[in-house]
């Protein structure tokens, strides 16, 4: 191998000649005069990806406007609002949408409430071992998939599960948490916790510890420091974590499917049922569009309320002080 390269013998090391080759290839593909456009080039993958997602919505929208013909099991050729009418008139879809939205709100609030102290402890602790412990306990479940974790929860919450064994041992009446809405919420909160902690930790790292000390020395008790200083300064992280947890919950499928016992479907379950149980791609598409609209609307409201600055675009400079 090496000898064939030396045979051509310009005497330059292989690595450099390889670089020459790459350089020539680059010149061919992206000439130097294009250099001012280079930063935009890096944006291209993101634009493509987003564009692809948006493009994916077009066939979805198209299908959602075509009711199913039961005689041939094909979607009608002519546009009609039948599928949306079905969504509006069948109360079950309202129930499922409300259940999903409520779960989004509850899970987001509970996850943030648990993740904030966790992230704070992880960022602030002086003990390396504690930080490691917190990180490991955060990541360990992260590597275990959602489905496996859901089944793990069933082992704990099931009628003959660990929780009831414990309650029984304490002489307490058994609980029946498995396959309830509460079980779905518990499973979701545990699933979302790492996402929230990982998004809050950098935001809290960006808050200098001196700021907290200053607040205390200026007379603020810990809760006042949390409310007046930590909360507003970590807002970008909180809003970002909230949006991520909310949208992930809103679109979750596995947790209600496995832990809900079949009676606690979310919108995603309804989409699945429409596509596969009913074979009605039009109705499924209408549900998908509805889900997209609801999710976007909520995120839009949050961003409008807190401003884009919450994501750190505008006020990021302040952290300099």
């Amino acid at each position: 191998m090496a000898s064939t390269i030396h045979d051509k013998g310009a005497g330059r090391p292989v690595g450099l000649r390889l670089l020459d080759l790459l350089e020539a290839a680059r010149e061919l593909l992206w000439p130097a005069r294009m250099a001012p456009l280079t930063p935009w080039l890096f944006l291209l993958p993101a634009v493509l990806l987003t564009g692809l997602l948006a493009a994916g919505l077009i066939p979805l929208l198209d299908a959602s406007l075509r009711p199913l013909d039961r005689a041939t099991f094909r979607l009608a050729e002519d546009y009609a609002l039948g599928n949306y009418a079905t969504l509006a008139t069948r109360p079950v879809y309202g129930v499922i949408a409300l259940r999903t939205l409520m779960a989004g709100l509850i899970v987001t609030a509970a996850t943030l409430a648990l993740a904030f102290p966790y992230a704070w402890m992880m960022v602030r602790t002086q003990h390396a071992w504690l930080r490691k412990l917190l990180l490991v306990s955060l990541f360990l479940p992260f590597f275990i998939g959602q489905v496996v974790r859901a089944y793990g929860w069933l082992i704990i919450l099931g009628k003959q599960g660990l929780l009831n064994a414990l309650l029984d041992g304490l002489g307490l009446p058994p609980s029946s948490l498995a396959f309830t809405y509460t079980a779905v919420l518990i499973g979701l909160v545990q699933y979302m916790l790492p996402f929230a902690v990982l998004m809050l930790a950098p935001a809290l790292t960006a808050v200098p510890v001196e700021v907290e000390l200053a607040s205390a020395s200026l007379g603020a008790r810990p809760f006042a420091t949390f409310r007046h200083i930590l909360l507003p300064m970590a807002r970008p992280g909180i809003v970002a974590a909230g949006i991520v947890v909310f949208t992930l919950t809103l679109t979750d499928f596995a947790m209600p499917e496995i832990m809900g016992g079949g009676g606690n479907d979310f919108i995603a379950s309804a989409v699945y049922d429409a596509f596969f149980q009913l074979g009605d791609a039009g109705l499924g598409a209408a549900l998908g569009i509805g889900l997209t609209l609801v999710g976007s609307a909520v995120v839009g409201v949050i961003l409008a309320f807190f401003g884009l600055g919450t994501l750190g675009y505008v006020e990021g400079r302040e952290e300099r002080s």
Partner: peptide
């Protein structure tokens, strides 16, 4: 059957 599925679902999710 699709209608029955839907109806069943409606009762169970309600």
């Amino acid at each position: 059957e699709s209608d029955w599925f839907q109806k069943f679902n409606e009762i169970m999710q309600g």
